[in-house]
Amino acid sequence: MEIPYTISTRPDTGLWNAKVGIWLFLASEVMLFGGLFSAYIFLRIDAAPGMWPHGLLNVPVGTMNTAILILSSVTVVLAWASLKMRRYRAYWWYMLATILCGVIFLTVKLAYEWPQKFEHFGAYIKPEALGKYEKYLGNERRTEKGLEPRIEITGHLHSQNAKEYEVALDPVNAEPDNPAMDRPHFFPLPVTDKIATIEKEDVERATMFLPTHSAYFASYFTITGLHGMHVLGGVLVFIYMWLPVSKRLYQRNPEHLANRVEVSGLFWHFVDLIWIFVFPLFYLL
């Protein structure tokens, strides 16, 4: 006996098997990312004043990546619709577009955004030494205005020896009293040529912007990393469906290929949706 309803729908449920399966899988994925997002909320609520950084990510690049992912969700639907209309060539092109969108997204993430973070430096100042670095932190004014204190000096690590770090400052530490620095900028401001010297004994912790840097970067790298793995998985599946192997399936049973594209397209929409949550949580809020 063959397994029924692999391609045709079961009359009383109106579904074929894989469609039930993928929705259940997506339910589990909601719970997986739900667990991670609730961790984000937990950590953010618990964060001590000044310990949850803002404006460290590149918003225009993130916006572009968001647009690319949304575009790919459109192209994958068009690919599926082309198959339903039995236009294989159109399907082939739309699928290629989807794959390229996924690849561009990953490249931007892994080859540009992440490495940029790895090169950025931050030093948390010990509470008793904060006064000493007031000219980089501007806490007097911030206390007056009721803003969160700054406890970290960031920038590019110029050089260091046994006693000191020399840091080319980020604008926020270069002009800490400038009201324009109270809010994160849409376009990231370049590192200034103003160099600050920070004594190592005044520093609580100093690292690059790695997962170890803070709870913020820990959750940023974990969630975007896991999301990236989902994008990669989707791209690999799409490549398989775009290769000549699938053309043969199309010639044998076009509906079967259309179903496969529909199921993986649902997954792709889900991956897109997760990014719609990731983007505001890390880039904007």
């Binding site: 259940l24 339910a27 589990s28 994925e29 719970m31 997986l32 667990g35």
Partner: peptide, 9 residues
């Protein structure tokens, strides 16, 4: 399906 993924997280 619904309880294991948060532990996985």
């Amino acid at each position: 399906v619904l309880a294991f993924p948060p532990l996985e997280a």
